[in-house]
Amino acid sequence: MKKALTLCLLILLLSSTAVIYADSKSLIGRTIKSEAAVTLNGKDIGQALIIDGVSYAPVRVIAEASGLEVGYKKGEVILTTETDVTIDKQAADIEPVSIEAMQKEKKRLEIESQTLSNYINDADKVIAIHKDALSKVDDTLKETYEEMIDKAEEEKAGYQRRLAEIESRLAKIEVALSASNK
């Protein structure tokens, strides 16, 4: 989420820069038409100025609220992250992200993994119950029970595929976290 917000803010800032450059007139002397609150996750973090229908938000306030460091050098605003972990993409197959983001993703995947394991166990129980019932019902209901067994087996296979994907992703996150601790 933080990465997406940062990207949106950068796009906003770049588009504002393009408008300023395209206009080629200085903002000096222009009239501020109004101000607008800038909020992040419902929290007021500053004010944006509205000049000729374009909002100009405070870069430093937005960037720092998004976890970026802000610098200025010779007419250039420089945004950097301090917690990025650069890892071997081939080894871990994930983009550089913050350690905190990887830990959150790991926790989320562990919960999803446990949930899928429970679904697989439940599917096994359903399949067993339907197979037991299949041996006891008359021929008119056998097709219905066979369809229910097939459906439960398909669902179980889907859960198993997703669980394998999650376990692979968790292993990659572990590699990345281990690399960041070195």
Rank of each mutant, 00 (worst) to 15 (best):
M1A: 14
A4C: 09
C8Q: 12
L10G: 12
L10N: 06
I11R: 14
L13I: 13
L13F: 15
L14Y: 14
S16A: 02
V19R: 07
Y21K: 08
Y21I: 07
D23F: 02
S24H: 12
K25N: 09
K25Q: 14
K25I: 03
S26Y: 00
L27R: 11
I28R: 13
I28K: 05
R30H: 04
T31F: 13
I32W: 05
I32K: 03
E35Q: 05
A37C: 05
T39Y: 08
L40T: 10
N41P: 09
K43R: 09
I45F: 03
Q47V: 09
A48H: 02
I50L: 15
I51N: 01
I51Y: 00
I51D: 00
G53Q: 05
V54Q: 04
S55K: 06
Y56I: 01
P58K: 06
V61R: 09
A63I: 01
E64N: 03
E64V: 12
E64Q: 02
A65E: 05
A65M: 06
S66A: 15
G67C: 07
L68M: 04
V70G: 07
G71P: 06
K73C: 06
K74E: 07
G75Y: 11
I78V: 12
T80P: 00
T80M: 02
T81Q: 10
E82Q: 04
V85T: 10
Q90L: 01
Q90G: 06
A92S: 14
A92M: 08
P96K: 04
S98Q: 05
I99D: 11
A101N: 07
M102S: 00
Q103P: 03
E110P: 00
E110M: 01
I111D: 15
E112T: 13
E112I: 08
Q114E: 13
Q114C: 12
T115E: 14
S117G: 12
N118G: 13
Y119M: 08
D122I: 05
K125I: 07
K125H: 14
K125V: 12
I127Q: 04
I129Y: 13
I129W: 09
K131V: 02
K131R: 15
D132V: 13
A133F: 12
A133R: 08
S135D: 09
V137G: 00
T140M: 08
T140H: 12
E143V: 03
I149D: 14
D150V: 03
K151P: 01
K151H: 05
A152E: 10
E154D: 14
E154M: 06
G158D: 13
R161W: 12
L163S: 01
A164M: 03
E165P: 00
I166G: 02
S168I: 03
A171R: 05
A171G: 03
K172I: 00
I173Q: 10
I173T: 10
A176Y: 04
L177W: 13
S178C: 05
S178D: 06
S178F: 06
N181Q: 14
K182I: 10
K182R: 09
